[in-house]
């Protein structure tokens, strides 16, 4: 740690959070700049819609990865990323929606209403976004305290929202559905890993592996 001695201890303790905020905000700023500078190609509104939607899904999946990483592998410090990742996912999903109603459909209520009724993928995507609203609102410490045990129950909705987001993606791709299926698969695996029996099984396996490795450590011999 000699080389890092000049780095403030705040940065040493919170580098993971700092990296997350920087990565998200820099990429968001970059996207905004690209749009403003006409760098988003031939169909910029569509590109903006795709990029914000994809980012929202990636961030949502990353936020869901934190808890299993902790419960299964004991990586505790990653838990602080759950809230920022979840909130950034919500931010991107909101931008995605605003681009659709504003930039794309010019806030034309009749046209937007017709699209929501006519296209199941829009209805499903909208439902996912609506489900994220109470989660974003109750993401503060105050709400966690007020809701007590119910906070955890409420926030299990995030899995529903994530699966609906994947369905939204699945229905919007033309025919090659491998990528949305990949996201769906990851979410299902993360969900399964949280089931108490599976979690206990993986933890037992991990304990066994650790014990096994300790036994196999040999003292160095002269010819090595």
């Amino acid at each position: 740690m000699h080389g890092l001695s000049h780095v403030p201890s705040y940065v040493q303790r919170h580098w993971l959070t700092l990296v997350t905020h920087t990565a998200v905000l820099v990429s968001l700023g970059w996207l905004g700049w690209q749009y403003g500078a006409h760098q988003l190609g031939v169909n910029p509104i569509q590109e903006l819609t795709f990029r914000t939607g994809k980012s929202a899904l990636i961030l949502l999946v990353l936020s869901l990865t934190c808890t299993p990483l902790h419960t299964l592998f004991g990586i505790k410090r990653i838990l602080v990323l759950r809230r920022p990742l979840g909130l950034y996912a919500f931010l991107y999903a909101s931008l995605h929606f605003l681009i659709f109603v504003g930039l794309d459909y010019g806030f034309d209520a009749t046209l937007i209403g017709q699209e929501i009724v006519e296209k199941r993928y829009i209805l499903v995507g909208l439902t996912a976004l609506v489900l994220l609203v109470p989660l974003a609102v109750t993401s503060t410490r105050g709400w966690m305290r007020r809701l007590g045990k119910n906070w955890k129950r409420l926030h299990r909705i995030v899995y529903g929202a994530a699966l609906l987001a994947v369905l939204h993606y699945l229905w919007v791709v033309k025919s090659d559905i491998r990528e949305p299926l990949l996201y769906g698969g990851v979410i299902v695996v993360l969900l399964v890993l949280r089931l108490p029996p599976v979690r206990r099984m993986v933890q037992r396996w991990r304990d066994y592996r650790v014990a096994d490795k300790e036994l196999r450590v040999q003292p160095p011999t002269a010819d090595q």
Partner: peptide
């Protein structure tokens, strides 16, 4: 591993932002 996760997360977002146009 943590460093890897951080880099991966940052990378995937930045990659999404940098598609050549």
């Amino acid at each position: 591993f943590m460093r890897g996760v951080g880099a991966l997360a940052a990378g995937s977002l930045l990659l999404g932002a940098c598609a050549a146009t």
